[in-house]
Design a protein around this nucleic acid. Structure first.
Lengths: 339, 339
DNA sequence: TATATTTGCTTAATCGATTAAGCAAATATA
DNA sequence: TATATTTGCTTAATCGATTAAGCAAATATA
């Protein structure tokens, strides 16, 4: 149990009677060190179980090889899959990631940013909390010259790298699909317009209606936080309308599930009477009855691309001027709720 | 965008014409520094937006104030909730956490451990992957003298601190509940006995049957990896038995869901014909039809207690001898599948 | 008044790894 | 053979913060 001291470069140097500087260079295969010395150093390093002191090299090099990640929550298929694939890419490049959760809270998000800056991460990859409107904390990251990459929930105003899906087009796909099925009154339970992605979904929805010569009815367009409870409440409101919708497009699977619960409780046939489509392709959408049609956001690609964008920023600083905005095409998964 | 240099203690020292050592002490409220100097230092620190260089102090103090966490996956209510509450406690104590996922893979788990040791975390809090049998990687952590705390998926052989629920008792609760409902042939789709918690669930199940004078039927006891697919396959096998069970206790919600799908597909009434109980109280258990009875594992408490156990290890090293094993009582949430 | 103690700082070393600068020996080139 | 270049290392400084040791001035005590 005794906490033995770690082996240092100096220990290796002492064994071989050379300087620590030579050992350091040997470990990094410096061309000015002889093969004989390199071999000897590596042999002793292995013998003494040498593990480089990451803190010391990080301090000296001014680089921690840590990347901070902020997600609204890990408890979702989308974010956990993004994290998994992001980590794979970054690990391969020698980076470790520190994952933090904002729990959709603006305060927690600010604290997370402070924490990550304090830990001296080399970059931050984030998806914004629903609550976030004030961007000054993100500006702080930018002003420190630390690479910032946003994914999924981004903000145009911040003017930073971004990876996400095409929300505008996704709304089009959904509306087209519903129109094909004969729907004429399509409601939209959306997020708040101040969040870019939700604004784009609303705009896509409105434009797609126009394109299909369907009237725009403001009573069918709702903004909310998109929790399960919001879905229940707003679906109830829609059912109280004189002229009920024949389809509901919900901008989040959680809210869609709430809506479905209300429809089931009121014994309204889905999809026969009202068709329902969610967003995010969460695991449960395929498990509930009826299963919910939803939009797959390509979490693997988003995770991978966000990581690669960060690596580009770090490894090719000459690209500093340009902005990387990567917009992926989403995929509509049709299930029982809209068949 | 220019990457301005960070403010250092030396910068503050220069402004005030005192030594960096005095500044360091002033920032830490050393009793040998005058109030006047402390105030001046703190004023200038704020003015220059001083942020301590965490790497430097960590190197000097031999302490990173980072805690590594390994979970099989974040994409589950249980683990994400554990993480959230663990983080809250550790943040309050000045620690940040690095979350890693093993994805239930032994190889990934070994890599995670290496990564965390490399990052020089002050401790590791882990829940083991299903695959893990060889414990040498965990022994490595112990041999370095770094505190190791296991939660949920632990191992007796490792002889380290542990926080989890009483799996043995949980099985009793489940069996008692089913017996009360009149069940006579209760099957158990469990995990592998080599994992402590699954072994305990099996033992609890067997002993509870004995206690209620029910016969032990080996064809009703199944070991598996407890994925959704395992649940489907094993439920199908149970249905092919000449003498079908009238209840199935599944040691994981995912496998329970698979079992439920098979029951629904075969139009077997749940709970009338076969009652079903899962384990873990995942979100979806309350969402599917019929909703699945399950065991709530008190993730909040587990997260909090694991963090507190780590803090105890660090702050009270004189306790080094004793072992902390915290076993919580779980709760059975009765839903439609067993009513 | 003479000595002891306390106060408030400074000096210098340290945590390990890295790197610029430099030097002697070996080798290449004219 | 005389000079230039390369090779293979060493020396010393550095990244910032911390801390043991120490010193002078201020204050307390005898």
């Amino acid at each position: 149990m005794a906490n033995k001291k770690r082996t240092t470069l100096k220990d290796i140097a002492n064994v071989l009677n050379i300087s620590p500087a030579a050992v350091s260079k040997a470990m990094h295969d410096d061309s000015r060190i002889s093969d004989k010395t390199k071999k000897a150093v590596k042999r002793i390093a292995k013998e003494l179980d040498y593990q480089p002191n990451h803190l010391a090299s990080a301090l000296r090099k001014g680089k921690s090889n840590l990347v901070g990640v902020i997600v609204p929550r890990t408890n979702s298929n989308f974010f956990s899959s993004v994290l998994e694939h992001m980590e794979a890419v970054l690990n391969k490049a020698g980076y470790n990631i520190i994952i933090t959760q904002s729990n959709e809270s603006f305060d927690k998000e600010c604290k997370n940013i402070d924490t990550l800056l304090f830990t001296q991460v080399d970059g931050i990859i984030a998806s914004m909390a629903n609550e976030t409107v004030d961007l000054s904390h993100y500006e702080k990251i930018k002003s420190k010259g630390i690479p910032l990459i946003l994914f999924d929930r981004g903000e145009n105003d911040l003017n930073v790298d971004y990876v996400g899906i095409n929300d505008y087009d996704s709304s089009h796909m959904i509306v087209e699909h519903l129109v094909e099925k004969g729907c004429k009154r399509i409601a939209h339970i959306g997020g708040y317009r101040r969040t870019r992605i939700f604004n784009n979904r609303i705009k896509g929805y409105v434009d797609a209606l126009k394109k299909n010569d369907l009237p725009i009815d403001d009573s069918l367009i709702i903004e909310s936080s998109l929790t399960l409870e919001d879905g229940r409440r707003e679906m109830e409101r829609l059912l109280q309308l004189e002229n009920r919708p024949d389809a509901v497009y919900v901008a989040s699977d959680y809210a869609a599930l709430g809506a479905l619960q209300i429809l089931n409780e009121n014994e309204i046939n889905v999809p026969e009477t009202i068709r329902l489509i969610g967003f995010g392709n969460e695991l449960f959408t395929s498990l509930v009855t009826p299963s919910i049609s939803s939009i797959e956001q390509h979490s693997k690609d988003i995770g991978r691309l966000a990581a690669e964008t960060f690596l580009k920023r770090v490894n090719e600083p000459e690209l500093k001027q340009s902005l990387n905005k990567i917009i992926l095409k989403a995929e509509l998964i049709v299930r029982d709720s809209s068949k």
